[in-house]
Design a protein around this nucleic acid. Structure first.
Lengths: 155, 155
DNA sequence: CCTTGACTTAAAGTTAACTTGAACTCCTAC
DNA sequence: GTAGGAGTTCAAGTTAACTTTAAGTCAAGG
């Protein structure tokens, strides 16, 4: 059992493509140790935990930018502790809960709005609460916690 | 109250940008009536319901391709009925429930895995059920119902 | 007559998160 | 000594879902 892992090993163990790992390294999300003789990357085992964290966060809906900002809050120098990791991930619970709430809201809209056939942006009480849609331009975004980012959705 | 709506009116009422509406029309998701004298689009009011459906579906996590495939199942010729709409949207409930289940699984992983500090792809029972990760390359994807689409996440 | 505002088109640009390709270096095995 | 496999770099390509830009039409108001 070697002290360091090659990019291929990390890829196999994490399920993340080697090209993605290089991409993460270039972006500064993960770091590798000083290269060996042949100029190949050597990763400390702790990188696996880091990658798990990244994949986790992505799946929750964070962008790599956001993840990077989170990681920047880890203590520099020493290896992150239990407390460090959970401090980072605690707020995600809120985010997950919000997204779940939105999905439940959407599911309700499905039943009560599309299901009832009233899916009209002008008259439906779901699509148009308080009859303000036409003036506020709310439209179907009533169900949405926030506007989708341009060109890309998450959650 | 006019019989038809201009693109600006549709945009204001739906909350969807005019450029997006043109884009949807070019893709064949929505259709406009024969143009008026000045060559401007004229939309039937029913397009608002269609747009609501699209926004709804998008937010649930369907791509425009998927939405287009769904819409293709609407009866051709006549205006869609209550039954038509709800037949389309019924399977979404399953999809929403799956995504909610995934998020709950992620939330549990957050508590039991990151929270406990064991977030290791090699040892953690969440990341590595049955110690098969190293051979199967399961990694953090244990929590994931399906692999994220390349370059883009949804849900 | 001139400006303003709403519309038109087609083509190119944007963003995220990668992937792919081309050209190259090393080490190991046969 | 050469073929294979794993690694390297850098640049360019990919996909989704739009947005932006440039250049033009048309009607109404002052």
């Amino acid at each position: 059992m070697d002290r360091f892992l090659t990019i291929g090993e990390v890829s196999r163990r994490s399920g993340v493509a080697a090209s993605a790992l290089r991409f993460y390294e270039a972006r500064g999300l993960i770091a590798s140790e000083p290269r060996g003789g042949a100029g190949q990357r050597r990763f400390a085992r702790s990188v696996l935990r880091l990658i798990a964290f990244i994949v986790f966060a992505q799946r929750i809906g964070l962008t790599l930018d956001e993840i990077q900002a989170e990681l920047a809050r880890l203590p520099p120098g020493r290896a992150p502790s239990v407390r460090d990791w959970s401090r980072l991930s605690a707020p995600w619970r809120t985010r997950i809960d919000q997204r779940i709430a939105e999905l439940e809201r959407l599911r309700d809209g499905l039943t009560q709005c599309i299901g009832c056939g009233c899916l009209s942006l002008e008259r439906c009480r779901f699509a148009n609460p308080g009859d303000r849609a036409a003036s506020r331009g709310a439209g179907p975004r009533y169900w949405l916690e926030r506007a989708p980012a341009a060109g890309r959705k998450t959650g």
